[in-house]
Design a protein around this nucleic acid. Structure first.
Lengths: 103, 103
DNA sequence: CCCATTGGTTACCTCGCGGTAAGTATATGA
DNA sequence: TCATATACTTACCGCGAGGTAACCAATGGG
C-alpha cells in the first residue's frame, strides 16, 4: 500500500525533472539544445540522465531523426500531460508567494 | 522576473520536505518522534535539517515545551497550509498512476 | 543508583551526484 | 581536405549530502 504522494515524489522528486516538464508543458516539443538553453544551470550530462529517467518512466517521449547532424525531439507523453494540474497548482502557489514576499 | 514554478521548487524541491509537509497536512501537529517514525527512511539528522529549513522559509512552526524529557511540536503555518492544493494534485495524480500501472 | 526517555548536536566517513572535458559520427560548407 | 555543428556518451574526479553513532540534559521509575 504505497502513498500516492510518495509515488509522485519518486517520479518527479528531482528539481531538474520538474523544470524539464515545466518547459515541455509550456513550450511543447523541443530539441535537446533548446531544453539545455531553456533550463538555467543544468549541464548536458545531467539533462541527458534526467531525460532518460523521465522516458523510462513513460512521462517523456524521445524521437530521433536519422539526420546528420543528429536531431532529437522531446515531448510529453499522454501520461506526461496528465501532470498538468500539479504544475498549475505549483504555478498558482508560486505566484501568490511572490506577491506576498514582495517580488 | 522569477518563474513561479521555480520558486515553488526551490522551497519544496526536496523529497523529504514534501513528505514532511504531507505528514503535517494529513496528521496535523506532530512531535519530532512521530514525524521520524512516520516518514520511512529519514534519519534524525536530515529530518532536523529539513525542518529547520521549512521553519526558516515560514512553512512550518516549531513549538518547544520546556520539559524534561523535551517535547517539541511541529505544525504548518498559515502559509504552509496554502500548499494544500499542490498536494491534492499530487495525491490525485499518484492515485491514477497506481491504478494504471496496476498496483 | 542507574537506566530509559526525547530531541537534538556533533564528529567522522563514505558514497554518489554532478561538473569538466574529451570522444563519436557524418554531412555540409569553406 | 578539414573544421564545424549536433546530440549525445564516457571517463575522470572532487565535494558535499547524508548515514552512523556517540554525547547531552534532567527526571521519573525500577
Amino acid at each position: 500500500m504505497a502513498c500516492p504522494i510518495e509515488v509522485t515524489v519518486n517520479l518527479l522528486g528531482d528539481k531538474w525533472k520538474v523544470l524539464i516538464v515545466r518547459n515541455l508543458l509550456l513550450g511543447g516539443t523541443q530539441r535537446f539544445g533548446e531544453l539545455n538553453r531553456g533550463i538555467d544551470g543544468v549541464t548536458q550530462k545531467v539533462l541527458t540522465q534526467q531525460l532518460r529517467q523521465l522516458e523510462s518512466d513513460g512521462l517523456v517521449a524521445r524521437k530521433i531523426y536519422p539526420e546528420v547532424p543528429p536531431r532529437v525531439e522531446y515531448s510529453l507523453t499522454e501520461l506526461g500531460h496528465t501532470l498538468k494540474p500539479i504544475f498549475e497548482a505549483m504555478h498558482s502557489w508560486g505566484t501568490s508567494y511572490l506577491e506576498l514576499r514582495g517580488a
